[in-house]
Design a protein around this nucleic acid. Structure first.
Lengths: 141, 141
DNA sequence: TTTCTTGCAAACACTTTGCATGCGG
DNA sequence: CCGCATGCAAAGTGTTTGCAAGAAA
């Protein structure tokens, strides 16, 4: 994404444009390494020696909210444990965190076709689909 | 899983069988709610008032290691951020955490067939396949 | 000028660790 | 009896929050 395009996008969402924000956005949006917050922070320190890790987090959340990046892992922050170790889909509400399982033979079949293409031997998998559940949609949050 | 079967399984893996372990295992293995460690802990407190949260974690890790449950979320403990918001597969080494992307049109197609079956409107998704990467396999860890 | 953002430090929440005690095999 | 498991408390780690000072619009 172009710098100017990014600025426009931020402005139209009602966010102010600061040097820190631009650099964080540019770094993460062009990154191919799925960086952690700390990785982004370290990178930013080179150009902004006084930047705060809080600013990094805040900007990442912002980008996640407007859909430019996906937060992987602790979107909820807490580990959950699933006794169902066969391939199935977890449908998760992005707002309240409620999880619904979806298990069906045809899904398993399609998924195994995908696995075959990967040419790896998986030792596990997580298929997570994020939604807003009916209750949260209603509340409009 | 039957109680006796569970005991056998633990023994054959070289683990000791304790009342706490049995109860934690039985609870999580029959659970349909993807409980958090704290949820398991609260449940255990009813029968084992002096149980420690550390014991719960240790047992969950153990079950995860022998493949009876899947740890969801912070398997690595740290959030990562992905600028690629279109459906694609992250191939993740369970040992070193290295992530490789897998993107291919046919996978996207198969995946969209799966989504159709779900009858929901996703606002995001994570497809994670866990493996042991070549380097980690070599080291035998 | 007004409002949002930054940087800092303290607070948080979940998870892990070290160690003495105790139980299982 | 030996060795692993437990319980406890302390330490660790990643993330969030409150607030005063500063920058963008």
């Amino acid at each position: 994404m172009e710098k100017q395009q990014l600025i426009t996008k931020l402005r139209e969402k009602g966010f102010k444009v600061t040097p820190q924000r631009i650099d964080i956005c540019r770094f993460i949006l062009s990154s191919k390494e799925h960086p952690t917050a700390d990785r982004v922070y370290q990178e930013m320190l080179r150009k902004h020696p006084t930047i705060s890790i809080a600013t990094v987090y805040q900007t990442l959340h912002l980008l996640n909210k407007i859909g430019l990046i996906e937060e992987m892992g602790s979107s909820v922050g807490i580990s959950r444990y699933d006794p169902n170790t066969s391939p199935h889909i977890n449908i998760i509400c992005k707002n309240c965190g409620k999880i619904r399982d979806y298990e069906e033979e045809s899904v398993r079949e399609l998924w195994s076709q995908i696995i075959t293409k990967l040419k790896v031997t998986p030792v596990g998998q997580h298929l997570e689909v994020y939604i807003y559940c009916d209750k949260c949609k209603e509340l409009g949050t």
